[in-house]
């Protein structure tokens, strides 16, 4: 029964990683850049939700919505101010800028919210489910996280395969020049991608803080890095890859904590990444790069 509990917890944690990884992978797919500030958007989402519930005394759902709105706008603003001017610059310059934005967000949060950890009240108030005479307990947060992940996956897949904007995104991710010739506004497409990724980061932030209720300015950095690992593990640029990578990573992390060592769990997670990349450099679902001439 323990095994099943660990598995469910792993899927739940993995779902949070997956939602964050989606933002990484979509932005990478379209803008060909690693947005290392992505993890810190999660933290901003957490704080916005926290303020809404604790200072504005509004219900959890309002907190979630406000967090999504603020982070979506934040994502668009970050892209416009920090990354857009570097569209023609080397990828190294963009990478360093992203790290700079990450520190900026963390330190801005430190100034505004101070360093002391806040106790986050879970936005989920549905009761736990007890199965097998109480031997298996699944918390409400766990259920909501997994459900949210499934819904997001279905919606994103439908968005990229059915809508005009979604198809345009795929076109831009493949060939910006050709997409422009079709009349697709590449800058706008990149903006929309950042908006979606950051909105998802807000949801991930709220779910993460609901499951692990301490909120600090650095809350987003470790999950952000792990989600990046998840995106690479699944194959960066691939939406199903981010999902698979996230969930696998969550399961591996929880199992490592349960059966091997809590201290070593992060090391094990990164070791798995190294092994997978040695065997499949493009990630599990990554596209092998082959060009037809």
């Amino acid at each position: 029964m323990n095994l099943l509990t660990y598995l469910i917890n792993g899927i739940s944690l993995g779902s949070v990683y997956a939602i964050i990884a989606l933002g990484y992978t979509m932005v990478y797919g379209i803008a060909k850049m690693l947005n290392f500030a992505h993890g810190d958007v999660i933290m901003v989402g957490g704080y916005i939700c926290f303020i809404t519930m604790n200072y504005l005394h509004m219900p959890g759902i309002a907190g979630v919505l406000l967090a999504v709105v603020v982070c979506t706008i934040l994502g668009i603003v970050i892209e416009k101010l920090a990354y857009k001017p570097l569209r023609q610059a080397t990828s190294l310059a963009v990478l360093i800028t992203a790290i700079g934005v990450s520190y900026f967000l963390q330190n801005a949060a430190l100034l505004i919210f101070k360093a002391d950890p806040k106790v986050f009240t879970s936005v989920v108030n549905i009761p736990s489910i007890k199965l097998f005479d109480g031997q298996l307990v699944i918390s409400g947060v766990t259920l909501v996280t997994i459900a949210a992940n499934i819904i997001i996956m279905v919606c994103l897949t439908a968005f990229t395969s059915k809508t005009k904007m979604g198809k345009a995104m795929r076109a831009v991710s493949e060939d910006k020049g050709a997409a422009q010739l079709m009349g697709i506004d590449v800058n706008r497409t990149i903006s929309v991608t950042f908006a979606i990724g950051s909105g998802l980061a807000a949801i991930a932030g709220v779910l993460l803080c609901s499951a692990y209720p301490t909120l600090m300015p650095t809350t987003g950095s470790m999950p952000g890095i792990k989600a990046f690992v998840a995106a690479v593990l699944g194959g960066i640029g691939s939406i199903p890859g981010a999902m698979l990578g996230g969930i696998l990573l969550g399961i591996i992390e929880i199992f490592a904590k349960a059966y091997i060592s809590t201290q070593l769990s992060d090391a094990i997670v990164f070791a798995v990444l190294i092994i997978v990349l040695l065997i499949r450099p493009a990630g599990l679902l990554g596209k092998k790069i082959s060009e037809k001439v």
Partner: peptide, 15 residues
């Protein structure tokens, strides 16, 4: 667009 279907490519042409 190599990863898009034939019809999706045409749809992009009429974006």
């Amino acid at each position: 667009f190599q990863q898009l279907t034939v019809e999706e490519n045409l749809e992009m042409g009429g974006y």
